Simulated assay, not measured.
Amino acid sequence: MGGTSVQDINTLLAVAIICLLIGTAIGYFIIGRMRPEQQNRAALEKQFNDMQRQQQDYQQQVSHHFDRTGELLNELAESYRSVHNHIVEGAQNLHSTGISPLQAIPEGRPVLDNKPSSLSPAAPPLDYAPRQPGKKGALHEEFGMDSEKKKSDHIEPPVTPHA
Protein backbone atom coordinates (compact mmCIF):
# COMPACT_ATOMS: atom_id res chain seq x y z
CA MET A 1 0.00 0.00 0.00
CA GLY A 2 2.95 2.24 0.43
CA GLY A 3 3.47 2.60 -3.30
CA THR A 4 0.07 3.82 -4.03
CA SER A 5 0.12 6.48 -1.39
CA VAL A 6 3.37 8.00 -2.74
CA GLN A 7 1.89 7.89 -6.21
CA ASP A 8 -1.30 9.49 -4.93
CA ILE A 9 0.73 12.22 -3.24
CA ASN A 10 2.73 12.87 -6.44
CA THR A 11 -0.47 13.00 -8.48
CA LEU A 12 -2.04 15.27 -5.90
CA LEU A 13 1.01 17.55 -5.96
CA ALA A 14 1.03 17.61 -9.78
CA VAL A 15 -2.67 18.47 -9.89
CA ALA A 16 -2.13 21.13 -7.19
CA ILE A 17 0.76 22.71 -9.14
CA ILE A 18 -1.24 22.65 -12.39
CA CYS A 19 -4.26 24.19 -10.64
CA LEU A 20 -1.97 26.84 -9.09
CA LEU A 21 -0.53 27.74 -12.51
CA ILE A 22 -3.99 27.86 -14.11
CA GLY A 23 -5.32 29.92 -11.20
CA THR A 24 -2.37 32.32 -11.47
CA ALA A 25 -2.94 32.76 -15.21
CA ILE A 26 -6.67 33.33 -14.72
CA GLY A 27 -6.01 35.75 -11.84
CA TYR A 28 -3.48 37.71 -13.89
CA PHE A 29 -5.97 37.93 -16.77
CA ILE A 30 -8.81 39.06 -14.46
CA ILE A 31 -6.62 41.61 -12.68
CA GLY A 32 -5.53 42.95 -16.07
CA ARG A 33 -9.19 43.38 -16.99
CA MET A 34 -10.02 44.94 -13.65
CA ARG A 35 -7.49 47.78 -14.10
CA PRO A 36 -9.53 50.14 -16.25
CA GLU A 37 -7.37 53.15 -15.40
CA GLN A 38 -4.55 51.83 -17.61
CA GLN A 39 -6.95 51.11 -20.43
CA ASN A 40 -8.68 54.45 -19.92
CA ARG A 41 -5.34 56.23 -19.91
CA ALA A 42 -4.29 54.60 -23.17
CA ALA A 43 -7.68 55.42 -24.73
CA LEU A 44 -7.49 59.02 -23.51
CA GLU A 45 -3.94 59.43 -24.85
CA LYS A 46 -5.06 58.08 -28.23
CA GLN A 47 -8.09 60.38 -28.23
CA PHE A 48 -5.91 63.36 -27.22
CA ASN A 49 -3.40 62.64 -30.01
CA ASP A 50 -6.25 62.30 -32.52
CA MET A 51 -7.74 65.62 -31.39
CA GLN A 52 -4.33 67.32 -31.61
CA ARG A 53 -3.91 66.04 -35.15
CA GLN A 54 -7.42 67.23 -36.05
CA GLN A 55 -6.70 70.68 -34.55
CA GLN A 56 -3.47 71.01 -36.53
CA ASP A 57 -5.27 69.94 -39.72
CA TYR A 58 -8.01 72.49 -39.03
CA GLN A 59 -5.47 75.27 -38.44
CA GLN A 60 -3.76 74.43 -41.71
CA GLN A 61 -7.11 74.50 -43.52
CA VAL A 62 -7.97 77.91 -42.03
CA SER A 63 -4.54 79.28 -42.93
CA HIS A 64 -4.81 77.97 -46.49
CA HIS A 65 -8.36 79.36 -46.77
CA PHE A 66 -7.30 82.88 -45.77
CA ASP A 67 -4.20 82.78 -47.97
CA ARG A 68 -6.37 81.80 -50.95
CA THR A 69 -8.98 84.44 -50.02
CA GLY A 70 -6.25 87.10 -50.01
CA GLU A 71 -5.03 85.95 -53.42
CA LEU A 72 -8.56 86.05 -54.83
CA LEU A 73 -9.20 89.53 -53.41
CA ASN A 74 -5.96 90.79 -54.96
CA GLU A 75 -7.04 89.31 -58.30
CA LEU A 76 -10.44 90.99 -57.92
CA ALA A 77 -8.80 94.33 -57.13
CA GLU A 78 -6.51 93.97 -60.15
CA SER A 79 -9.54 93.24 -62.34
CA TYR A 80 -11.35 96.27 -60.95
CA ARG A 81 -8.25 98.40 -61.53
CA SER A 82 -8.02 97.19 -65.15
CA VAL A 83 -11.70 97.96 -65.82
CA HIS A 84 -11.43 101.38 -64.14
CA ASN A 85 -8.28 102.30 -66.09
CA HIS A 86 -9.93 101.12 -69.32
CA ILE A 87 -12.90 103.42 -68.63
CA VAL A 88 -10.53 106.31 -67.81
CA GLU A 89 -8.61 105.76 -71.05
CA GLY A 90 -11.84 105.61 -73.03
CA ALA A 91 -13.16 108.74 -71.35
CA GLN A 92 -9.95 110.62 -72.13
CA ASN A 93 -9.86 109.46 -75.75
CA LEU A 94 -13.56 109.77 -76.47
CA HIS A 95 -14.48 112.89 -74.47
CA SER A 96 -14.83 115.98 -76.64
CA THR A 97 -12.33 118.03 -74.62
CA GLY A 98 -9.98 115.12 -73.99
CA ILE A 99 -10.13 115.87 -70.28
CA SER A 100 -11.83 113.38 -68.02
CA PRO A 101 -12.74 113.86 -64.38
CA LEU A 102 -11.65 110.25 -63.83
CA GLN A 103 -8.07 109.47 -62.93
CA ALA A 104 -6.22 106.21 -63.49
CA ILE A 105 -5.43 104.00 -60.52
CA PRO A 106 -1.67 103.30 -60.29
CA GLU A 107 -0.71 99.68 -60.98
CA GLY A 108 1.67 97.35 -59.24
CA ARG A 109 0.57 98.07 -55.70
CA PRO A 110 -1.04 95.04 -54.01
CA VAL A 111 -4.37 95.76 -52.40
CA LEU A 112 -3.98 93.19 -49.65
CA ASP A 113 -0.55 92.62 -48.22
CA ASN A 114 0.22 89.53 -46.15
CA LYS A 115 2.76 91.48 -44.10
CA PRO A 116 1.59 92.87 -40.75
CA SER A 117 1.02 96.59 -40.62
CA SER A 118 3.78 98.70 -39.14
CA LEU A 119 1.24 101.24 -37.93
CA SER A 120 0.50 101.35 -34.25
CA PRO A 121 -3.01 100.26 -33.35
CA ALA A 122 -5.58 103.01 -33.04
CA ALA A 123 -6.43 104.09 -29.52
CA PRO A 124 -10.00 103.45 -28.42
CA PRO A 125 -12.20 106.52 -28.09
CA LEU A 126 -12.19 108.21 -24.71
CA ASP A 127 -15.40 108.08 -22.75
CA TYR A 128 -14.50 111.18 -20.78
CA ALA A 129 -13.39 114.72 -21.53
CA PRO A 130 -9.63 114.94 -20.92
CA ARG A 131 -8.46 117.86 -18.85
CA GLN A 132 -5.42 119.98 -19.62
CA PRO A 133 -3.11 120.70 -16.68
CA GLY A 134 -3.98 123.97 -14.91
CA LYS A 135 -7.43 124.23 -16.48
CA LYS A 136 -10.85 123.12 -15.39
CA GLY A 137 -12.12 119.95 -17.04
CA ALA A 138 -15.15 119.90 -19.32
CA LEU A 139 -17.20 118.23 -16.59
CA HIS A 140 -16.40 120.88 -13.97
CA GLU A 141 -19.41 123.06 -13.03
CA GLU A 142 -17.55 126.29 -13.84
CA PHE A 143 -16.15 125.07 -17.17
CA GLY A 144 -16.41 127.82 -19.78
CA MET A 145 -17.75 130.38 -17.29
CA ASP A 146 -14.68 132.67 -17.56
CA SER A 147 -15.54 133.77 -21.09
CA GLU A 148 -19.17 134.44 -20.12
CA LYS A 149 -18.13 136.52 -17.08
CA LYS A 150 -15.97 138.76 -19.24
CA LYS A 151 -18.87 139.37 -21.58
CA SER A 152 -21.22 140.06 -18.69
CA ASP A 153 -18.79 142.59 -17.16
CA HIS A 154 -19.20 144.82 -20.21
CA ILE A 155 -22.96 144.90 -20.38
CA GLU A 156 -24.28 148.02 -22.02
CA PRO A 157 -27.55 149.53 -20.86
CA PRO A 158 -30.50 148.90 -23.11
CA VAL A 159 -31.28 151.64 -25.56
CA THR A 160 -34.85 152.89 -25.65
CA PRO A 161 -36.32 153.18 -29.12
CA HIS A 162 -37.18 156.71 -30.26
CA ALA A 163 -40.73 157.08 -31.14
Rank of each mutant, 00 (worst) to 15 (best):
P133E: 13
H65W: 07
G90V: 03
D153T: 10
G108S: 05
A42T: 08
D50E: 13
P125F: 05
G70F: 03
F29T: 04
D153P: 00
I17A: 09
I30R: 07
H162T: 11
Q55D: 11
A43I: 10
Q47Y: 10
H162M: 05
D113E: 15
D57H: 09
M34G: 03
S63V: 08
T4V: 13
G90R: 10
P125L: 05
Q55L: 02
G98K: 04
A163Y: 02
L112F: 14
E75D: 11
K115S: 15
G23H: 03
Q56T: 15
V111P: 01
R131K: 15
Q60S: 14
A42L: 10
S117A: 11
N74I: 03
Q103W: 02
E107C: 02
I26L: 12
S82I: 10
P158T: 12
I30V: 15
K150C: 02
F48A: 07
L112E: 08
M34D: 02
E75L: 07
R35Y: 08
Q56W: 10
A77T: 01
D50P: 02
M1G: 10
I17P: 00
K135G: 00
P158Q: 09
G2F: 02
G137H: 03
R131C: 15
G23A: 07
A25Q: 04
P130I: 12
R33T: 11
E148D: 07
A77E: 03
D113I: 15
G144M: 00
N114A: 15
R53F: 02
V88G: 07
L139D: 12
F143Q: 01
S147R: 12
E156D: 06
G32K: 06
I22R: 08
A91D: 12
P157R: 06
V83L: 14
I87K: 02
E45N: 05
L76F: 03
Q38K: 09
R131T: 14
T69S: 11
Q38W: 03
I31L: 02
V159N: 09
P130K: 12
V6I: 14
R41K: 03
G108Q: 09
F29H: 04
S96R: 06
S100T: 09
D67T: 13
F66L: 14
K150A: 08
H162L: 04
N114E: 14
K150N: 05
P106Q: 06
S117R: 04
A91P: 00
N10I: 15
P133A: 11
L102S: 06
R68W: 05
A42G: 05
D8Y: 10
H84W: 13
Y128T: 15
G70A: 04
I17G: 01
G27D: 00
Q55V: 06
R33F: 09
E148F: 13
P133F: 07
Y28K: 08
P110W: 08
S96M: 10
E107A: 07
E71F: 02
A129M: 12
P101L: 01
K151T: 09
